[in-house]
Design a protein around this nucleic acid. Sequence first.
DNA 1: TTCGGACAGACAAACGATTGCGCTTTTTGG
DNA 2: CCAAAAAGCGCAATCGTTTGTCTGTCCGAA
Lengths: 343, 343
Amino acid sequence: MPSAPTIKEIARRLNISASTVSRALHDHPSIGLRTKTRVQQLAAELNYEPNQTAIFFQQRKTFTIGVILPELSEAFFSAAISGIEDMAGRHQYSVLMGQSHDEEEREKLIVSTMKKHRVDGLIISIAKNTKDYSHFNMLRQAGIPTVFFDRIPNLTDIHYVACDMVSGTVQAVKYLLGKGHRVIGMINGPDKLLASRQREEGYIKAMQKHRLKYDPTLVVSSDLTKEGTDKAMKKLLSLKRKPTAIVAFNDYVALDAVQFAVKNKYKVNEDLTFVSYANLPMSHYTAFPPVASVEQFPYIQGQRATETLLEILTSNAPADSPASPDHWKKVILESQLMIHNVE
Amino acid sequence: MPSAPTIKEIARRLNISASTVSRALHDHPSIGLRTKTRVQQLAAELNYEPNQTAIFFQQRKTFTIGVILPELSEAFFSAAISGIEDMAGRHQYSVLMGQSHDEEEREKLIVSTMKKHRVDGLIISIAKNTKDYSHFNMLRQAGIPTVFFDRIPNLTDIHYVACDMVSGTVQAVKYLLGKGHRVIGMINGPDKLLASRQREEGYIKAMQKHRLKYDPTLVVSSDLTKEGTDKAMKKLLSLKRKPTAIVAFNDYVALDAVQFAVKNKYKVNEDLTFVSYANLPMSHYTAFPPVASVEQFPYIQGQRATETLLEILTSNAPADSPASPDHWKKVILESQLMIHNVE
DNA sequence: TTCGGACAGACAAACGATTGCGCTTTTTGG
DNA sequence: CCAAAAAGCGCAATCGTTTGTCTGTCCGAA
């Protein structure tokens, strides 16, 4: 019933003007100490809280950042948003979030909702099959700064945070070479994915550094379904030079690949060793965990993306001033091989 | 530069009043067809979008629901928020989210932020150690409807959605009995947790239905750490009547328990069978997965919680009218045993 | 011809807070 | 003691939209 007390209410009770109350609450120098304390006391008594929606409206700022992710129930993204929220909260920003479920249409819808909500900025990891970038252009026109992360669109003039898979892959292959493996297979993802190209690049790099020649038949690709992975495994295991170790595109692929190997009577991690890329926090609890995996630090990526966005927001740049050469912030983290201490 | 076009701008260009434009855009009957189309056309041309912050302010409604969860990177909660966001989106509501990290202080802070943001309603799963409920009372005073889920405070006059563990536990124990087990152990959680009491209740119920006597020494409790679980296992395995099957409090506990069993040369799922409660989506990929687990449907819980909240919001009840007996909505889902087809 | 109503649209207040400017009162310095 | 500066506060506009009420016009019927 006693609907939230407003600044006017306080003004009325104290027989002063609303502007005075506002300034008093903000400790404005032009307000006398007497009235200042009177106001602040009454405000405390009434449990006054400024109506943020009014302020948002007036200030054209919502202290809210939007986050658009493909799928929250994927461990990678839930870790990422966890990092985003932590960092945002630390700077008194709130997080409005939406999941695209990897559908372009939903992604566009969410972008539009976020725009309507007047979020101050956006952090986006794009849907798998998003080909049309018109909604991102709308954002630019609307002057809403956007930072992409992990899954970034194929554009140059954008801010983004990503994790470079090359370094981690190099480490992974080196590790296997160090363990004596000479024939190392790789189950890669679809060629068009940047992530796939980086993995292959890392593979080749590591081989070259060890003065070993790169055998392309050892790198096969899976469409990431179980069937695709099975096919890939068949290919690898029917080679004359059969691999003694395999680098899998991710934990899901590794899981399927291991299963295939087991079915075909391979002794996993004895005659066939697996290394993977971390998606599942618990993958080292599995029956035959990869001996090592490349970590992509989703939580940290989320944090860095948020930091980047906040920098842009507080540098109150006039939205479109791509004049400066370092205008487009590109943060690249190095992936890192984590060796599991198998007991 | 051409900052977002407003209703005023349209009015100016068409030499009509802002109110007319507003009504025209809302297809109000008292506006002539001529002007209506003129307005709508110009609006489309200018790419006009209503300023939601202004509307939120004016309508005292934000079409935003707040979600407070302990930890987004826990699979259970990320599945839940996924359900929440899907259902909210379906009704044009946005989701503002925050994680308490199981800390009472952060929880209170987030509640206050959400209140400031004037969310229309809240969905909360409380932090583990929240003992003081004053922040929830503030919400009630502020007239913000709140639906609790899964982790609910010990209060009667609240809305909540939860999953009853009794039924699932009964099914689990029955299943084991059906498989011929007669001595069934249980590693339960801390006694004070409702979740623990429900599990014990289910255990007893199932025993009684099978006219078997309930042996309290077979139900031990763990503090959910690895050490606690090890201790619990020791207790169980040193009984004269040694259990041939164990119901573990959750997948994490099961993981630790299995590890303990393996170290002590038990043949898991042969001389010692495990059943658990689902937390980890991938737990059936583990080395010795539980033969069955009790599912708590986090995604559905999230959905139902959102539905419940939306009902309250649209029934535009005067916030505090606990007059009606069914005012406090209590939705209880049944947990369900999922039997893993071990190949 | 005149009156009652429909119909189309304009006016203005309101939502709650911020802020530039101007007005009074006090204080200060010469 | 007086002018000028400083201090303390009020006025009013503003942000963009909605909505109750009022005005004006035109038509048909009495």
